[in-house]
Design a protein around this nucleic acid. Structure first.
Length: 644
DNA sequence: CCGCGGAGTGTTTTT
DNA sequence: CACTCCGCGG
């Protein structure tokens, strides 16, 4: 039996040993939350709870895996604990019970597919093309999604976030209805639907709910401040029978409001579960006190919060965090790259350093500078691998193979052909017989049409792919042969993209089921963006991390650089007209600061690297406040000071 | 009806 | 600046 008291402080120990009944843990940044979950899983198992009956829901699959693999070091049974994101959990349940919600099968739409589907609905609305300021498909998608996620009428969503579109409430409502109908017709689920249908299943189907509640008799949810209403409802439904549910969160780190997350979920949890035990973890094990002084100063400036004050458990001293000013983004980037080298020279591995920023584009000069100095790095956040056009193109061939009714994928691959645009693609789609075997799909085509030959080739490809079943890598090769000329024609940088597709093949080859591969790729996509694989060839050196603040959540490094601290970047300019929005940006800043263990370096550049006229940047309002500034050592570094 | 080129626009974070 | 959308020529 593990000696828990040796590894945990008294409040952590109490959390670990409280097994039954509802528990709410308010865990400050760096307070050993991961460790607590790790040991609680272990404790449950050592107290004869079967690992299969423990459900660990976290924000990313990476987080779940990390906790479980840590716990498994003490006891290999921990590997059998069930876990993942709400979305992946929902998918696995719905797959099993699709019949009882009225579907034989379904395909999953990612954000881009969903916007595409909205586009289809949008086109059906006449007279709109003339309207000047009607929202675009991506905006519509966001409005509709928020309305469903927060269970708010369209009008209310428009009022709170999109005032300029209030006049179109009627049309947007119609699009929302059309979109819902369209998805039903095509057996499409978008991200929201996974949660919506899971909730529906749990509400409507008593038997399934009891079965699941019986199966998962201990439930833990991490990062609860970032769950939305639906996820909170699902948690309550799952735990309703036994009430053995522990949620962990930190209201100060709620940064997903734009996705419908509400930190009020934390506050409301005790209402759903009366008698809920509330425990706090306040001691910080991560950072040296000077870093926490900055974090506390930021906390003090927040209006809405649980009162909190971070105190370093064992590291009272450390270097004072720095604030640096640069002329422009390039100087900033070069100085940071240089400083990283210097830290490395002092024995701090690259893997113990990170550069964080509000938005992905901020990192472009940095990536150039890192390249110059030959510093290997991996990128988190920003444009995803799976969102790039070439990846989506290639996957579409697989998608129609798995689900011949997948209209959105058909439209995509048809429009890749010369002379076929949206209209013709639609026409072709109407003609082909989707229920017939693949090789006959194009039999009924008009032989005289100019693109007929191309359609025959496409048909032959799909036939070859289906013959190669189930060898996914063979199918992939066939597909690649076909797509290669299109790739070359369509993209300037086709070589880079071809490498991506090779990487994609490696991922695909690990699967035995094509539909599992496709579903996983949409629900739990590979985290690393394309740039991450920037081949430095040095696999022996663990790379530096550069990441959006959002993607850095839950992680920690010895040295953290926080670049581009400009008012308008953080807080981002379009959050400024809304108090809630600014507060969320401030929490984001707090999250960023609390990632650092020892060295924290904040920086600003003055000259806008934006488009148009270069403007004079003002320092972020979150930094530019007396109580924060006094915790920072200000420097005006310039490259001339450095020894090149 | 496709596809190209020019104009205009909005610019973020993630499952 | 990068992407989307619109209008025009083929």
């Amino acid at each position: 039996m593990t000696d828990y008291a040796k590894h945990l402080n008294p409040s952590q120990l109490e959390v670990v040993k409280t097994l039954n009944g509802p528990v709410l843990v308010i865990a400050g940044a760096g307070s050993g939350k991961t460790r607590v979950i790790e040991y609680r899983v272990l404790y449950l198992i050592q107290n004869h709870v079967s690992p299969q009956s423990i459900l660990l829901l976290t924000f990313t699959r990476r987080a779940a895996r990390e906790m479980l693999s840590r716990a498994a070091r003490h006891d290999p049974r921990c590997n059998y604990v069930q876990g993942g994101t709400f979305h992946s959990f929902a998918f696995s349940i719905l797959k099993k019970h699709s019949k009882s919600i009225g579907f034989d099968s379904f395909s999953i739409l990612d954000e881009d597919d969903a916007a595409q589907a909205i586009q289809v609905c949008l086109r059906k609305l006449t007279d709109l093309s003339k309207e000047k300021r009607f929202p675009k498909k991506d905006t519509l998608r966001k409005i509709v999604s928020m309305s469903l996620n927060k269970n708010m009428p369209i009008e209310e969503v428009l009022e709170s976030q999109y005032g300029q579109f209030l006049d179109f409430a009627v049309e947007i409502n119609k699009i929302k209805d059309d979109y819902i109908r369209y998805k039903l017709e095509k057996n499409y689920f978008d991200y929201d639907d996974l949660l919506i249908y899971l909730k529906l299943l749990l509400v409507k189907n008593e038997a399934v709910r009891k079965e699941l509640s019986g199966k998962y008799s201990y439930i833990m949810v991490d990062e609860y401040q970032d769950t939305n209403r639906l996820q909170a409802d699902i948690t309550c439904l799952l735990a309703g029978e036994h009430k053995n549910v522990m949620i962990v969160g930190d209201d100060a780190q709620s940064i997903y409001g734009f996705r419908g997350a509400s930190h009020e979920n934390i506050l409301e949890f005790p209402k759903h579960f009366p008698g809920c035990k509330v425990l706090k973890l306040e001691e910080n094990y991560r950072s040296h006190q000077p870093v926490l002084d900055v974090a506390n100063a930021v906390l003090a400036n927040m209006k809405k919060k649980f009162p909190k004050h971070l105190i370093s458990a064992a590291k009272p001293n450390g270097p004072k965090p720095e604030l640096l000013f640069f002329k422009d983004a390039y100087e900033e980037a070069e100085w940071v790259a240089f400083k990283i080298k210097e830290f490395e020279g002092q024995g701090i591995d690259l893997s113990q350093q990170a550069v964080l920023f509000r938005s992905a584009y901020i990192s472009i000069p940095l990536q150039l500078a890192l390249g110059k100095l030959n510093i290997p790095y991996q990128v988190f956040g920003g444009l995803k691998f799976y969102e790039t056009a070439h990846v989506k193109d290639l996957l579409s061939y697989f998608r129609v193979l798995v689900n011949p009714l997948d209209e959105i994928s058909w439209m995509r691959i048809l429009q890749l052909l010369e002379g076929i645009g949206p209209k013709t693609a639609e026409k072709v789609l109407k003609l082909i017989n989707l229920s017939s075997p693949i090789k006959d799909i194009f039999k009924t085509q008009d032989k005289k049409s100019s693109y007929e030959k191309q359609l025959v080739r496409l048909g032959r490809l799909l036939e070859r792919m289906s013959l190669a079943k189930p060898a996914i890598s063979k199918q992939f090769d066939a597909c690649m042969d076909y797509y290669y000329p299109i790739l070359k024609e369509k993209f300037e940088d086709w070589q880079q993209r071809q490498e991506d597709l090779q990487a994609l093949k490696q991922i695909a080859a690990r699967y035995t089921s094509l539909s599992d591969f496709l579903a996983d790729f949409t629900i739990e996509p590979p985290e690393r963006s394309v740039a991450a694989k920037a081949s430095f060839g040095k696999l022996d050196v663990l790379p530096l991390t550069i990441s959006t603040i959002h993607s850095a959540k839950g992680l920690e490094w010895e040295c953290v650089f926080l670049i581009g601290l400009i008012d308008g970047v953080l807080p981002v300019s379009f959050s400024l007209d809304d108090e809630e929005g600014i507060e969320e940006e401030q929490r984001l800043f707090y999250v960023a600061v609390t990632r650092a263990k020892k060295h924290l370096i904040l920086s600003v550049h003055h000259e806008g690297n934006g488009f148009g006229l270069s403007q004079f940047n003002r320092i972020s309002r979150f930094v530019d406040s007396p109580n924060v500034l006094e915790k920072l050592q200000q420097k005006t570094a310039s490259l001339e000071d450095q020894d090149w």
